[in-house]
Amino acid sequence: MKRSTTEFDKELGAQVRSVRVAAGMTQSELGAAVGLTFQQIQKYEQGANRISASMLLQLSQALNADFSAAVALEGARPSGEVRSREEEWLLADFARLDAGRQRLVLDLVRTLAGA
C-alpha cells in the first residue's frame, strides 16, 4: 500500500526550496550534492515525494541548514496556512541557524510578540 504525501510534506518541501534558493543553489546542484537528479529534488520541493529522515539529514548538510525546527513544529500550526514572501525568507534564514541561535531568535520573537 502506497502512502500518500501530506500537507506537512508540502510545507517541508517548500522550506527546502526556500533554503536552497536563499543559498543560491540550483536544483541540479543540490541534487548532485546528495546523489539525486534535479527531478527528484523538484518532487521533494513540491511535496510530491516524502523526504525520509536520512535524506533530510543529507539535504541539511548540503544546504548547511537545520530543518529540525520545521519537523518539531509539524502539528503545532494550523493546516492550510498561507505564508507571505517575508515569512518564507524568515523561515529559510531561520533554518540556516544553529539550534542555539534558533532558540535566541524564537525567544526574541516571543518577547516582541508579548507571548
Rank of each mutant, 00 (worst) to 15 (best):
L97P: 08
E29N: 09
S68N: 09
L108M: 13
T6H: 04
L30N: 07
A76C: 01
A92K: 10
V105S: 04
M25T: 13
P78R: 04
S52F: 08
K43F: 01
G31V: 11
A70P: 07
D98A: 14
D98S: 14
Q46L: 12
E81P: 01
V109W: 09
Q58M: 12
D98E: 15
K43A: 01
L36N: 13
R17M: 00
G35N: 04
N64M: 12
A23Y: 01
P78M: 03
E86L: 11
L91F: 10
T37I: 04
R50L: 02
V109E: 07
E88H: 07
A14D: 04
K2Q: 10
V109H: 06
Q40L: 00
R50F: 01
N64S: 14
R50S: 05
F67I: 06
S52W: 11
F67P: 02
Q61R: 11
L73D: 02
L112M: 13
L97Y: 12
R77P: 00
T37M: 07
T37D: 04
A33Y: 02
A95M: 02
R50E: 03
F94D: 03
L56M: 13
D98W: 14
F38H: 11
I41E: 01
L90C: 12
T6S: 08
A95S: 07
A65D: 08
L104N: 14
L73R: 03
T6V: 03
A53D: 13
T111W: 12
E11W: 04
A99E: 10
L90Q: 14
L59I: 15
E86Y: 12
F38D: 12
L59F: 15
V16S: 03
E86S: 10
N64H: 15
